[in-house]
Nucleic acid binder design. Structure first.
Length: 197
DNA sequence: GTCGAGATTATCT
DNA sequence: GATAATCTCGACC
């Protein structure tokens, strides 16, 4: 199913609902196991914090669109745009489990050894699905990239965002959501225990 | 299995 | 010119 009204809610509410959702591109289908919420201009960790720009314009647009961006030069990451028109909230798809088209995904990601690695991480997910910058702004209901929401809400866990530099990371923004116990959840996002006194 | 450091380019100031 | 919502690789247990 694809409920656009559901996607008009703030990213922090939509994010847990996207867990277990299926994303399909061509022959490849992925089940989302980890996502992260970004609340636009009120969120210091968001690309939209400093206002609209060429890169993040899609985030201000229709909920249910695909927002793609380049990070660290070589990597592409994909978001689902949420919130009402004019708000810059979005949910970053961080990891997933390949349900179909695993051979296509494998051939695109020659470096992965295990199947669990194929879509573990935002950039890997995009490579496995074949999402590029050219797919940014597409409609997730009718475009090349399809999103299908789960029938039932999965059990989920929350935690602080990591990978966000400067303000916006840490415990003040516990907007990371994942399915507990899933092996496709990125390891470096798990709680890092510290050896302390 | 886990941990730590380096690479690389679109986008914005 | 600085910045970044990351990945890969090598070293170690």
């Amino acid at each position: 199913m694809f409920d656009r009204e559901l996607l008009q809610r703030p990213a922090t509410e939509v994010a847990p609902l996207l867990l277990g959702a299926r994303v399909s591109v061509g022959d490849v289908t992925v089940r989302l196991t980890e996502v992260e919420a970004y609340l636009g201009e009120q969120d210091p960790g968001s690309h939209a914090f400093r206002g609209p720009g060429r890169r993040n314009a899609v985030m201000y647009g229709e909920p249910g669109s695909l927002y793609t961006y380049f990070s660290y030069g070589m990597h592409v990451c994909a978001n689902v745009v949420t919130g009402e028109l004019g708000t810059a909230s979005a949910v970053l798809m961080r990891a997933g489990e390949i349900l179909a088209g695993i051979e296509t995904a494998r051939s695109r990601r020659g470096t992965s050894r295990t199947d669990a690695d194929l879509a573990r991480g935002p950039a890997r997910l995009c490579v496995a699905l074949g999402i590029t910058l050219a797919d940014g702004g597409l409609d997730l209901q009718s475009g090349r990239v399809r999103l299908e929401l789960p029938d039932r809400v999965e059990a989920f866990a929350t935690g602080p965002r990591t990978g966000v530099s400067g303000a916006g990371g840490g415990e003040d923004y516990p907007w990371r959501f994942w399915i507990p116990g899933d092996r496709t959840v990125s390891r470096y996002l798990q709680h890092k225990p510290k050896k302390g006194p």
